[in-house]
Computed example of a mutant assay.
Amino acid sequence: MTDESRPRRTQEQRRAATVGKLVDATIAAISEVGYQRTTVQEICGRAGLSAGAMFRQFGTRLDLIVRTASDIMERQLDGYRLTMEHLGAQDNPLDTALRFLRQAQQSTLTHALREIYLAARSDADLRARIAPIAETYYADIVAALDDTRVLNAFPPEKREPLFFMLLYLFSGEAVVRGVYPRPDFDATLLTLLEDILAVYAAHTEVQTRP
């Protein structure tokens, strides 16, 4: 197709493409060089755009960071939902869910989001902007998880805390293994965790049995 015959993109399509480049560049920069070193110059250099092009889409660096956090959460949520849709066809749905949650915490996307979370601890403006997005994000994940019934062996009031316990565990693992990797523990830790959950499920079943 020649340049003359190729359909011209609309202004909205061009804007979406520019925003996409900026968000992808921000994710890559934060995951590789950290939040503080992800400057406007760093982002634009990776995106192949000028600072002026960035500021035509985002009023401030903070606006871009917030949009990036939101996009990361949307992409991660899509991954969670896709995995959960297929849990019913798995021989061991809980094992599949645990493996996905663990892998998700080790991804480039989550690493970038974790860096943003860490920055938000000491940046009140950033924290105020992303907290409502995060609240909706986790509520949607829990709702999708409830639909799978994968945690139905546990009392209803324990299921959401169980999810967050597993999230915190795998998130912490992802941080530590960046400095001290122990791949020889990977299978053992997962088996141990599933055994612990099985014992707890049996314990709660006994407690609630009439």
Results as ranks from 00 to 15, higher is better:
residue 74 E to A: 15
residue 85 E to F: 05
residue 109 L to G: 11
residue 202 A to Y: 04
residue 138 Y to T: 06
residue 10 T to Y: 08
residue 37 R to L: 00
residue 112 A to P: 11
residue 136 T to S: 15
residue 101 L to A: 00
residue 50 S to W: 12
residue 197 L to P: 02
residue 175 V to P: 01
residue 44 C to S: 10
residue 28 A to V: 03
residue 4 E to H: 07
residue 32 E to C: 08
residue 117 Y to S: 07
residue 114 R to P: 04
residue 117 Y to A: 10
residue 114 R to T: 13
residue 26 T to V: 13
residue 126 L to N: 02
residue 203 H to D: 14
residue 68 T to K: 10
residue 180 Y to R: 15
residue 61 R to Q: 09
residue 177 R to W: 01
residue 147 D to N: 04
residue 35 Y to W: 05
residue 122 S to Q: 13
residue 66 V to D: 08
residue 15 R to Y: 01
residue 191 T to A: 14
residue 196 I to N: 12
residue 167 L to P: 00
residue 116 I to F: 07
residue 18 T to I: 05
residue 189 L to I: 13
residue 157 E to M: 13
residue 198 A to S: 06
residue 64 L to V: 12
residue 134 A to R: 14
residue 43 I to R: 10
residue 67 R to M: 00
residue 118 L to R: 01
residue 20 G to T: 02
residue 88 G to P: 12
residue 158 K to M: 15
residue 108 T to F: 06
residue 109 L to Q: 14
residue 147 D to F: 04
residue 161 P to D: 02
residue 87 L to S: 02
residue 109 L to D: 13
residue 131 A to M: 11
residue 179 V to D: 06
residue 183 P to Q: 13
residue 111 H to D: 09
residue 189 L to E: 05
residue 201 A to E: 00
residue 126 L to P: 03
residue 73 M to G: 11
residue 78 D to W: 05
residue 83 T to I: 01
residue 163 F to I: 03
residue 31 S to F: 07
residue 62 L to M: 14
residue 103 Q to C: 06
residue 65 I to V: 15
residue 59 G to W: 02
residue 8 R to H: 10
residue 128 A to H: 08
residue 22 L to G: 10
residue 126 L to V: 03
residue 46 R to H: 03
residue 117 Y to Q: 08
residue 131 A to R: 15
residue 109 L to P: 05
residue 53 A to T: 13
residue 95 D to W: 04
